[in-house]
């Protein structure tokens, strides 16, 4: 917006943007007081403010919700259905529980909060200071539901531009491991932001449409980089630390297949840079783990 400033005799500088922000109640108290003081000595600016305030009043009186006709039955029914759905207890199912468990193990409870505390995440998603479009897209897709991951091809992943907002997301510039040698095609990726850091989920699929989810995020752990394996119902969970990151795999493909996939991921990651986060990443030696 082209700024039109007025230099008032003995008064502060007041611009078009300030006038608009004043009318819309977007100014902090101190700046608001400055504008009010400027308006007292600038009749033209005061007239402009009055005109815009009248616009707002007229908008409200013209389109007051109280004067709307009653909602048609289909809208009433949809409203009721949304209310019922929101009131009902969220469904829990095996894979999600297993993934939540794995993430909790991986990131010390950090990402587990992703599944439990959507409030804060939505705030991050909607009110970041001009996040990059790709990040915003990722957040928005994530907001639309865990069942709708952001669809990115492996070659697109490095294009998630780094920014102040994306710095919180580990490995956002990392390249997704190519697991085609294991019969797995990357089909989707999504960012799972957390309070201090976050995680990334990559979803791979076999030709038979069986899926493997790979989670990774930064860690302070300097522990044993060997694989840990856990069976949770039909789900197999595999996790390990490597180069300052925690990794987790979750799938119904079974122990042997998951170990092979884990090995391939580990090998693929040997050439990745350490995560650029505030966490003190440990450079674990990626020795042979099997």
């Amino acid at each position: 917006m082209k700024e039109r400033f007025r230099l008032l005799p003995g008064g502060p500088l007041i611009g078009e943007a300030q006038i608009l922000a004043y009318v819309d109640g977007q100014l902090p108290p101190r700046e608001r007081a400055e504008v009010e003081s400027a308006l007292a000595t600038d009749p033209k600016a005061a007239e402009e403010v009055e005109a815009y305030q009248t616009q707002n009043r007229l908008l409200h009186s013209s389109f007051s919700a109280r004067h709307l006709p009653p909602p048609p039955p289909n809208i009433e029914a949809l409203t009721q259905a949304i209310a019922d759905t929101r009131a009902s207890k969220p469904r829990r199912h095996g894979p999600l529980q297993a993934a939540g468990f794995l993430l909790a193990m991986l990131l010390g409870g950090l990402v587990f909060q992703v599944w439990e505390e959507h409030d804060e995440l939505q705030d991050i998603a909607f009110f970041q200071e001009e996040p990059s479009l790709s990040l915003l897209g990722a957040f928005k897709d994530w907001n639309e539901g865990p069942a709708q991951p952001l669809h990115l091809r492996s070659q697109d992943l490095p294009s998630i531009a780094p920014s102040s907002a994306v710095n919180a997301i580990p490995d956002s510039r990392g390249r997704a491991p190519d697991l085609r040698s294991e019969g797995l095609e990357l089909i989707a990726a999504r960012l799972l932001p957390g309070r201090q850091a976050g995680a990334m989920e990559l979803i791979y699929e076999t030709p038979e449409r069986a899926r493997v989810s790979l989670y990774f995020g930064p860690t302070r752990e300097r522990g044993n980089p060997r694989f840990s394996l856990l069976q949770e119902g039909a789900m197999t969970l595999l996790f390990w630390h490597q180069q300052g990151r925690s990794f987790g795999l979750v799938s119904e493909l079974g122990r042997d297949k998951l170990l092979a996939v884990g090995s391939a991921v580990q090998a693929a990651w040997r050439h990745q840079p350490a995560p650029a986060t505030g966490l003190d990443g440990a450079a674990n030696s990626p020795d042979s783990l099997l």
């Binding site: 949304i82 759905t85 929101r86 969220p90 469904r91 999600l96 959507h118 409030d119 939505q122 705030d123 909607f126 907001n143 639309e144 539901g145 865990p146 069942a147 709708q148």
Partner: peptide
Amino acid sequence: VLRKGAKVNN
């Protein structure tokens, strides 16, 4: 979206 299990607080 809600029926897919997503929580929308805002």
